[in-house]
Design a protein around this nucleic acid. Sequence first.
DNA 1: ATGAAAGCGCTAACAG
DNA 2: CTGTTAGCGCTTTCAT
Lengths: 336, 336
Amino acid sequence: MVRMADVARAAGVSTMTVSNVINGRPGVRADTRLRVLATIDELGYQVNATARSLRTGRTGAIGFVLPELDSPYYAHLSNQLSAAAERRGRHLLVERTGGSRERELEALSFGHLRRYDGVIVHLVRLERPDLDRLRFDTPVVFLGESPVPGRFEHVMMDDVGGSREATGHLLGTRSRRVAIVGGRHEDTEDMASLRTRGYRQAHADLGLDVDEALVVESRTYSRDEGHRAVLDLRRAGVAFDAVFCVTDALATGALRALADLGLHVPGDVQVVGFDNGEEADFLVPRLSSVEPGNDAIAELALDLLEQRIRTADPADARPRATTTVTARLVLRESTR
Amino acid sequence: MVRMADVARAAGVSTMTVSNVINGRPGVRADTRLRVLATIDELGYQVNATARSLRTGRTGAIGFVLPELDSPYYAHLSNQLSAAAERRGRHLLVERTGGSRERELEALSFGHLRRYDGVIVHLVRLERPDLDRLRFDTPVVFLGESPVPGRFEHVMMDDVGGSREATGHLLGTRSRRVAIVGGRHEDTEDMASLRTRGYRQAHADLGLDVDEALVVESRTYSRDEGHRAVLDLRRAGVAFDAVFCVTDALATGALRALADLGLHVPGDVQVVGFDNGEEADFLVPRLSSVEPGNDAIAELALDLLEQRIRTADPADARPRATTTVTARLVLRESTR
DNA sequence: ATGAAAGCGCTAACAG
DNA sequence: CTGTTAGCGCTTTCAT
């Protein structure tokens, strides 16, 4: 372990001069700087980020707290956030909660947050009572559909609008029995509910009733659940001529199930997904999907965070808001 | 900001007693403990991890440094590592390098590593000269195919064996012109080279020559490159009756391209991927793929890291090794 | 069972 | 242009 003090002694200067050199601060004579740099190199010295962070209160890192790393949606979003953060000269550290209440709370604990200058958080379990109790002064931007107390910034996608457009397209292209996979009978504020709300609105727009038998709930939003859901519908004898899946992963499973059943897409059954992940363009048939605007979400979240980090005044009273990024339907081969 | 000293004052004890309570150390009277806990709760105190870490030299966090977050392979591996680390009472923080030399070096800098008690690293750019120059005492386990100096632990998958088995299966099921997508003409030690080596060995096993026109290199290992590669082969008039793709993502693109060309899989062309990701089971047709043993790799990497963290002696001379985890071919619908 | 003192490695503030 | 002093919030050590 080489300390700054070691460098200072070896170079015959004080630690402050070493510190000034390292941090590129002005007011160091050129020859002194060179001597210090040479010594640093020679001893292989590297700053202790922990000590610096304790002293300055800054870490140079931004956190991204999410439920799962291996869903295509979060994987893609993380990658975009990481690349965008890098462009701004910051490092992104990604942390998984597994979608458990306990781990979400832990990730938002003060001690944990000290690791970061700011944090972007996508919660799936914590509800208002929990959120209201949160106390920290690390700048935070929330993503996702859970309603967030007004004192926090919140960026979300247009779940309702995107779903309405997708369902509307299906109903507008001669489908009359549109199933929703990953929907929700109850109307709360989670992702499934919001997307189901758009689905219901599209029906209402045309004066159509929703057959609740077509609303299929799912425990997860992964491929196997999409596969199971379509097979279940068939087994239950529920007729359908289109499927709106609330994620691309569900849609991938649904497409596979329809192939297993020997049904033609989009001839017999149309399919639309939500997320517009890279995979959509490579499925057979290529999947029409709702593009939620991840790029815009990533940039916006980082912009907001950057602002909060810079005006580090905890009592900063500037208005915070929930910003909704526009979604749009991308048509491919799985629809008519 | 509530400090430990604030809690101590409010509870009428010393900071040491508060510290002892928080860390569950013995030697605190029950009533004192309760009073301290009540005060902590009341003031909403949370330990400052940075300060603790400066003092103890430990952080409770393990790092995972990888090239990209959004490739299905790394996404899945990260998720497994994170879940496994959690089971061991540790937190995993994931950091992306983007596959650039500069960022890989930075991630391995001493200052950066101080954030972690130990780090698992999957490099793709750094070469021996760079690695030999590395100086740090944070325990590190390397993943991936780059050769690693003997002083480090290294866990890798059996790229050669898995590829040999996959190619062998194709050659053993009446395919005579097996293309490799994502292969490498030159034989070095990167992933593409190793998997191509297995491909060549399988040919040699049967006394067959490899037609270099069937070895298609690719810049990335993503779906679009797989798609492009198959179309290019066709356009160039190279005949083939099977495709071994060195990743599932490439295979997904290849399947899509074969569908575009109106070729039947596996009737006209067989396809095998490598990674055995969740998607393999939902493609049309379902993709046969080499299972690299991610679970075993994740557990092993964490075991090795845990050992190094515990025996924190930097001069620890116990032997380090490269451990190769066995790969095996999983057959599905894309092969005969 | 509890507390006082010292210090982890760095940098802000000020002095020279 | 360079150095001195103090202290970030915690835990280790040793004393009581």
